[in-house]
Amino acid sequence: MTETKQDEPFRIGLIATDPLRVVGLQTIISEQGGAEVVTVASPGALDASGVSLVLVDAACTDHLFELLETFRRSRPHLRLIVIGLEEDHDYIQKVIGAGAKGYLSHTARENEIRMAIEIVLDGSVWAPRKVLARLLEASAGERRGPLPEPKFTERETQVLELLVAGRPNRDIAEALGIDAATVKAHVGRLMRKMGVENRIALSVQAVNRNLVRK
């Protein structure tokens, strides 16, 4: 999942009120590397929960964006994934813009949910491709002036290509025959070379500047 040791269970928060959805998500998540699900009613309930990621069922509140803003103000480092009925790309982009790191529809398959959790825990964003493309375009428009061409090692290039493809650290490590800590170190060097502070910005820059093979 992340660099967390396999024998150390991690906690995922869940804000949902539909009993069937709660049970379903708990079952799916509990099968993912021994994760423990903590149901919470509000941001304040997270104080002693020890979670780093929270799934928010949009159907449980009429004030989703206010809730996201509360999280952003009080816990800016907490990663949020919204699960909702809406599939409109404008709406999903608005959700991501409000601070969520991922968006899943209520019809998402089990493997999608697990992959989204891995990707977000690894520091990237999970959303439909068209939404991510809009984020890429917006980021490209914010750049000022020409940027120097970075020089990557062969291994860094391999890591970058898999990162842009949406693969979490664990999958990258398995694909390249290295451990997850080494992958994390490569990603850190890539971010420094590209002058960015997070994985999604690294992916954005790599695509916009044609630094990876299509």
Rank of each mutant, 00 (worst) to 15 (best):
M1L: 13
T2H: 08
T2V: 12
Q6I: 10
Q6A: 14
D7H: 12
D7A: 08
I12C: 02
A16H: 02
L20A: 10
L20W: 09
V22C: 14
V22G: 07
I29M: 07
Q32L: 15
G33E: 06
P43M: 07
G44W: 05
G44V: 06
L46P: 04
A48I: 06
S52V: 11
A58N: 02
H63T: 05
L67Y: 01
L68G: 03
T70A: 04
R72K: 14
R75M: 15
L80G: 06
V82W: 00
Y91T: 02
I96W: 00
A98L: 01
A100C: 02
A100I: 00
L104Q: 01
N111K: 07
N111P: 05
M115Y: 09
I117H: 01
I117E: 01
I117V: 14
V120W: 06
D122M: 04
S124Q: 01
A138D: 14
A140N: 13
R143L: 15
E154L: 08
R155E: 08
R155D: 09
R155N: 07
E156M: 05
T157R: 13
L160V: 07
E161I: 04
E161M: 07
L163F: 05
A165D: 09
A175T: 06
L176Q: 04
D179H: 05
T182R: 11
K184V: 05
V187K: 15
V187E: 13
V187L: 14
G188F: 06
L190Q: 01
G195C: 07
A201K: 07
S203E: 11
V207W: 00
N210L: 10
